[in-house]
Amino acid sequence: MTTLDARFEQALTDVKALAEKPGNMTLLRLYALYKQATEGDAHGDKPGFADIVGKYKYDAWASLKGTERDRAKELYIELVESLKSGAVS
C-alpha cells in the first residue's frame, strides 16, 4: 500500500468520525471524489428523473471526468482534513 493509499484509507475512517455531519453539497463532493478515486470516470446509465438523489450523485461524479484516481484521492483527503479542522461544513 502506498502512502497515498494509506492516507486515503485514514480519511475514509476520519470522515465517519466527524463531530458534525457535512452539508449536502459537501456530502455530494465527498461521494464524487470517492467514486472517482475508486472507480475512475462515471459509467453506467444516468439515473432518470424519478431518482433525484441518484441523478445528483451521478452528475457530481461525472463532473470529475478525466480526473486521475490519485488526484481524486488527494482532493478527498484535503476535503476531509478541512472538515476536521472546521474550515468547511
Rank of each mutant, 00 (worst) to 15 (best):
M1W: 07
T2L: 04
L4A: 02
D5G: 14
D5C: 09
Q10K: 10
L12P: 03
L12F: 02
D14N: 02
A19G: 05
E20G: 14
K21E: 07
G23E: 13
G23T: 12
M25C: 13
L27A: 07
L27R: 14
Y31Q: 13
K35N: 06
A37V: 04
T38Y: 06
T38K: 06
E39C: 13
G40E: 00
A42L: 01
A42M: 04
H43Y: 11
D45R: 09
K46M: 10
G48F: 01
G48D: 05
A50H: 06
A50T: 13
I52D: 14
G54V: 11
G54T: 09
K55D: 12
Y56T: 08
K57A: 00
K57P: 11
D59R: 03
S63W: 05
L64T: 11
L64R: 09
K65M: 07
T67A: 09
E68C: 02
E68M: 03
R69Y: 02
D70P: 03
D70K: 04
D70H: 03
A72R: 01
K73T: 06
L75M: 14
V80Q: 03
E81N: 08
S82M: 08
S82H: 13
S82K: 12
L83F: 13
G86R: 03
A87S: 10
V88W: 08
S89I: 09
S89Q: 08
